[in-house]
Design a protein around this nucleic acid. Sequence first.
DNA 1: GTCTATATACTGATAGAC
DNA 2: GTCTATCAGTATATAGAC
Lengths: 202, 202
Amino acid sequence: MTATTPRVRGEYAKTAARRQAIIAAAVEVFSSTGFHKGSLRDVADRAGLSQAGLLHHFPSKHHLMQAVLTWRDDQAQARFDFDAGGLDTLRALVDLVEFNQTETPELVELFAILSGEATAPDHPVHDYFLRRYAVVLDFVRAAFAELAETGQLRPGVDGTSAARSTVAVMDGLQIQWLYDRDSVDMAAEVRRHIQSLVTVEL
Amino acid sequence: MTATTPRVRGEYAKTAARRQAIIAAAVEVFSSTGFHKGSLRDVADRAGLSQAGLLHHFPSKHHLMQAVLTWRDDQAQARFDFDAGGLDTLRALVDLVEFNQTETPELVELFAILSGEATAPDHPVHDYFLRRYAVVLDFVRAAFAELAETGQLRPGVDGTSAARSTVAVMDGLQIQWLYDRDSVDMAAEVRRHIQSLVTVEL
DNA sequence: GTCTATATACTGATAGAC
DNA sequence: GTCTATCAGTATATAGAC
């Protein structure tokens, strides 16, 4: 009986629910303090079990952190249409920013803090973010490249550069938003930025 | 005898040098691990004195962190011409990015990590970053506003929005650069971004 | 699967000699 | 001004009962 055994019914349903509750608690803790400062005891308390009990499900703090990131990736992949292509990809990107701001503000916090913390080469999830940025940048770059082929890219705009600045605007705005949530509309700003790079209406 | 007593000669020169060495060591430590994970013992070791000895100069970890930020602000103020005005302000901004990337990469790390960590309202330097972003954003906004008066702003561009996106690009690029230093030219990207907002040659 | 108890290590800060 | 010694707190992780 592995982890791929059906989880909705049977003796593993409770375990799966437990794991999910722990991950949710971990998001709460790590999003407000980062990985280093966040404690397993705090996570365990919020999940309603002891710290040793938590370590039965995730053998180490590092494993828990990885589980959180994997869970979040699965969530994003289910919601976001990565295969839209060209302009629709960029529209979906703006929608994602809007969704994150209104529906999952804790995950915005989590990634804002972790992406900074994990720049240190020996950080437990450094490699995750290294790969993540490579993938995201290449993905956005491909979208701009598609637009270039159909002449929808503003003259003089380079695809790689456009991808870099677009991702940078998204990340930078998250920081500003976390310091002053009422006066920053992340989606609107990202939309404006992308609009300044293309010739067609977003 | 206060801290404003001449430091170059006399019995206070050594103390000032000691404090400076400690601050330099603190930049090293906090820039690679952040405030929470960075330890006073590590800082003390690098500065060549005991942990208790360090606490004679800075009564707490929080005080040391504040001293680092204040020192950095003084440095920046001495180098950066804040009163240039209009287009020259924006040019100085690009120069600053270039300078930081080539001359003070550790401070880029420090601010990238801390600006994320300190989004938590109870972080020791949360208020510092809150105020810092308010000041910087208003400063850049004023520069764009000056350009608007002389018709040097691209039609449809709002000063506040331009300031937000410009600062966001700067912050976001720092993260990307820290993950892949060889393939990101921060100054060039910032210049490109600002150029897309104004009608005159930067 | 969950618990209590604990091992081990490290933290920031203090006390007091010199 | 700097040190050694130490305190009290917290951390992750493990051992073993149930």
